[in-house]
């Protein structure tokens, strides 16, 4: 039997919003550690790897590791039936062919439950090599969303150039070209407003803005985003999910293959 009760139900709603436009279907791999999901988009250009840790749930029971094959569009529609302040409980029997979602209002005066058929998905698992990245940029997530949206008016690719002075985002197209330079923050009192560039060596890479704009759908999950880059390896965009005390409840990570000179 798998049962997980999330008091902050809005977290699961936001997680669904962060993946539903990129992926059609995926398996939630549930184990004692938590709920994980890893899947590539249909073109194999981007990969999502997310985790909701078991200790982020009010209670969490997983008798046996199970893999729940889900049509994400359907799950997203059902989660839209939950209010932002609802408590969400997910339940599935071990040999289940269905998953149930229960939404409870804070005053427990309104309880709804929805059952959804599961899918048989072959759980192809990708090995993501641990990488020592040449550059890791930490910045406000809203700032990154703004940059990706603004530069999309110029072209379909962004060149990200990271040096010790800071990071520059550039785009060009028929309309013209544009550059956005972010300086390394000096002493910022509020950490989540800082731009921090941890650079081992300078890196310049080109990525599709279409995919980056899918990734920024995760911005409501975290006030900060980190971009990890090395020459000729996929970009890793990570939104950490922390609770109010700052303890990690999980993460949403996106990987994006670069565009290179043909």
């Amino acid at each position: 039997m798998f049962e997980a009760r999330l008091v902050e139900g809005s977290l699961l709603k936001k997680v669904m919003e962060s993946i539903k436009d990129l992926l059609n279907e995926a398996s939630w791999d549930c184990s004692g550690n938590g709920m994980c999901l890893q899947a590539m988009d249909s073109s194999h250009v981007a990969l999502v790897s997310l985790m909701l840790k078991s200790d982020g749930f009010e209670n969490y029971r997983c008798d046996r590791s199970i893999s729940l094959g889900i049509n994400l569009a359907s799950m997203s529609k059902i989660l839209k039936c939950a209010s932002n302040d609802d408590i969400i409980t997910i339940r599935a029997e071990d040999d289940a062919d269905a998953i149930t979602f229960m939404f409870e209002s804070p005053k427990q005066d309104r309880v709804s439950d929805y059952e959804m058929k599961l899918m048989n998905l072959d759980t192809e698992h990708l090995g993501i090599p641990d990488t020592e990245y040449a550059c890791v940029i930490k910045m406000p997530s809203g700032e990154f969303s703004r940059i990706c949206r603004d530069l999309s008016v110029l072209g379909d690719s962004v060149i990200i150039c990271c040096t010790k002075d800071g990071v520059r985002f550039s785009a060009k197209g028929d309309l013209g070209n544009g550059n956005i330079k972010l300086a390394q923050s000096a002493n910022v009192d509020k950490e989540e407003e800082a731009v921090v560039v941890d650079m081992r060596e300078a890196v310049t890479l080109t990525f599709s803005l279409r995919y980056l704009n899918f990734f920024t759908k995760a911005a409501p999950l975290s006030s900060q985003v980190s971009l990890s880059m090395s020459e000729d390896v996929p970009l890793m965009v990570e939104y950490k999910i922390n609770d109010k005390e700052g303890d990690s409840k999980g993460y949403v990570r996106y990987y994006l293959a670069p565009k290179i000179e043909d």
Binding site: M40, S43, H44, V45, A46, L47, E124, H125, L126, G127, I128, P129, S157, T206, S208, V233, P234, Y255, A257, P258, K259, I260, E261, D262
Partner: peptide
């Protein structure tokens, strides 16, 4: 022109 790579050349199925 720049060509979009896929992840298949970077990540491998377990």
């Amino acid at each position: 022109t720049k060509v979009q790579k896929t992840l298949d050349t970077f990540f491998f199925f377990d």
